[in-house]
Write a protein that binds this DNA or RNA. Structure first.
Lengths: 189, 189
DNA sequence: CGCGTCTTTGAGTCAAGTCAAGACTGGTGG
DNA sequence: CCACCAGTCTTGACTTGACTCAAAGACGCG
């Protein structure tokens, strides 16, 4: 269902406020969704990796903007056909519920980040990535600015947090965008 | 519907996790609801004034603890009777929806406070109180600690914020618990 | 290579938190 | 009626974590 489509890096998939005609599934590459708040300012930035859905909306408009972080292929599924199937196919209806409730849970977890220090946020982010990719070696497809926005810190603070984790050998930096995660839970200094 | 009941100051109305048998409406006095997080630590602290409902739960358990801030009278309404009425009386069903959606809206607004400075949070809180009471002279029924927890700051920071507002004659302090709000929106120094 | 972008590092600032002390308040008993 | 006391609130001095500004270092692509 739906059709695969190529997206180049930084390509805008949809903008906040635009009519939500399709839902999307990442097949390869990586996507960011966020709420634009002024020039160069973004909040609620989230990442979507292969297998993830994005662009799910209850009403007719996108509440987030979405852009490709790397070149990738996304499955574009017209909302109409989803709605049509959901009424007849119970399995699809259930998986829709599943997808949205998981998104909701993620959003609620995300609220909590304000109660944690920069180091904790970064550590949590890395652990999350490791869990999602199921490998100790984590590939950061996205630039530091995206991660910083996701965690609600500045790129400098992010960089310093990474250095601190590195000094404590909690991580090793293969390259700037490749990190080995050598810890299982964050321990304050 | 339901029966009025007296509550003394600091009386626990219900604790988080307890079965939710009733819903409540404040008739006089003031209530705080919150999530207990460790000894002397609370989050998501909210206030409920005369006319407000509290203790509304979707499932059978209270997700918040509730205590009377001052002596007061609350209407105690058994959930069963509400549920029974709601299925037959459309007006009640609608007002239930109204009440819960307003609670939800308040909760979503509340999320945003982390993006504001202490002074902004305090100013916003005072404006909110003035709006709710419809008078410039605001009576703070609750101790500073409650307000601080509500705004996610410390009592010292709260106190300093109030002095700063006072120095700028945005407010005048009739007494420690009585404040005149003389401004319409917060202006950074 | 060389340029532009991305990332790290350094130095300084600032808002809010902590710790500690003093001031105010309201209630109680002498 | 006043003095005292406990709880509440304010103030001061200090610490700290994150942000800003500025500059240097690394990387990738032509």
């Amino acid at each position: 269902m739906g059709c695969a489509q190529d997206f180049a890096r930084d390509r805008v998939v949809f903008a906040r406020g635009a009519p939500a005609r399709n839902i999307y599934k990442v097949q390869s590459g990586c996507v960011r969704t966020y709420v634009p708040t002024g020039p160069n300012r973004r909040t609620d930035l989230a990442f979507h990796f292969p297998g993830d859905y994005f662009g799910l909306e209850l009403d007719g408009k996108h509440s987030l903007s979405a852009e490709a972080i790397s070149d990738g292929v996304f499955l574009v599924i017209p909302r109409k056909s989803v709605a049509a199937c959901a009424t007849t196919d119970l399995a699809i209806a259930n998986s829709l519920i599943d997808i949205t409730s998981r998104a909701l849970k993620r959003a609620q977890e995300y609220r909590q980040i304000h109660y944690h220090s920069a180091d904790e946020r970064v550590a949590h982010f890395l652990l999350d990535l490791r869990k999602r990719f199921k490998r100790k070696e984590v590939e950061l497809t996205m630039p530091r600015q995206d991660i910083a926005d996701h965690l609600n810190i500045t790129i400098e603070t992010l960089s310093r947090a990474l250095t601190r984790l590195h000094n404590r050998s909690a991580i090793s930096l293969e390259s700037q965008r490749r990190i080995n995660v050598n810890f299982n839970r964050y321990q304050p200094a």
